[in-house]
Write a protein that binds this DNA or RNA. Sequence first.
DNA 1: AACATTTCTTAATCTAGGTTAAGTACTTAA
DNA 2: TTAAGTACTTAACCTAGATTAAGAAATGTT
Lengths: 191, 191
Amino acid sequence: MNLLLENIAKHVSLTSQEQERVLSFTEPLQFKAKTILLKSGEVCTHSYFVTKGIIRSYNMDENGVEHVVSFACPGWWIADMYSFLSQRPGQLYIEVNEDAEVLAISKENQEKMYSEVPKLERFFRIIIENSLVASQQRLIDNMSFTAEARYDKFLKKFNDLAHCIPQKQIASYIGVTPEFFSKMKARLLKK
Amino acid sequence: MNLLLENIAKHVSLTSQEQERVLSFTEPLQFKAKTILLKSGEVCTHSYFVTKGIIRSYNMDENGVEHVVSFACPGWWIADMYSFLSQRPGQLYIEVNEDAEVLAISKENQEKMYSEVPKLERFFRIIIENSLVASQQRLIDNMSFTAEARYDKFLKKFNDLAHCIPQKQIASYIGVTPEFFSKMKARLLKK
DNA sequence: AACATTTCTTAATCTAGGTTAAGTACTTAA
DNA sequence: TTAAGTACTTAACCTAGATTAAGAAATGTT
């Protein structure tokens, strides 16, 4: 069965007509690794529901250093939320980490979906609530814990995926340089 | 007119019956400064819409250091989202900074509100979307900017309120110690 | 296979911000 | 009004993590 419909069914129940309607608003797309779906400065016109592969979002600071905002694996959504919601230029890059398949929803279709299938307001409210909780937790973790503890948390959260993600991206996600991350890992091995 | 209804009206339009219904789910409460509305380890049973004063939420790390998660002034919501949504014990404290008035909504009433006035699904979806964007922006800022730049951003975001908030709380919000914040401020004055 | 590019590691050096400690203002409460 | 707590400052010293640089290993390309 369809992964998106499965996920929706966890929170709201749709009739089969509504299910079809939802799918009709989405566009299945395939991307090779390293494809860039969005660049900083562009308007984010689509939100992506990942069904296969891994996609990440990041920003680049004034020194050209990347900071990973999120990794999306199957069952997760990814977009530059600020830009997608406001339809103004955003600051995030969205890039395919591993050959991926997604269901893409345009901003217009997202709005249509809300008006034609109002139950989805609830579904997305819940999805976004969960993202907010995760984002606040990460903020707290960054302020409360050392890099080592943050790496522990990362491994717990992404356990199986950690092996598919280049170290420099993990370093970026937990907020340290690749060099320090490498040193830290060597230190951990000695224990 | 009522601040909550004003805010709702910015995103969805309610009939006057619906407006009354919404208010009937809320409980107006007053609190003196320093009142603690929620402690770490407790279940967050209410979400608060601030109509007067300032309320803040924070966690305390294993060394007893506080980290401010958010300041809520009139027109803002505050709760331990994780705990409120899951009804499990949370890690946040919620404390009144300045004598405050709020509209409190219990978890049960929140759920009733969603089922009796489905338009509110949309309202809260939008509110939470905006919180998510703000939270992610703060994450990016913490990873990309120095303490000085973060303080600049803080001043822009909370300009008028900055004067009402103790320095140690500002320091905590931007993620530095009170001592370093003090040093940094002195350095900024010299420029 | 050979070259180019990117990723990862190691090590020396540096710095933003933390820690400790002591002193000076403010508040708050009896 | 006075004592006790809390907020802010200053300064000496410390450290987690950054920076720079150079080599080794992996990966991609012709």
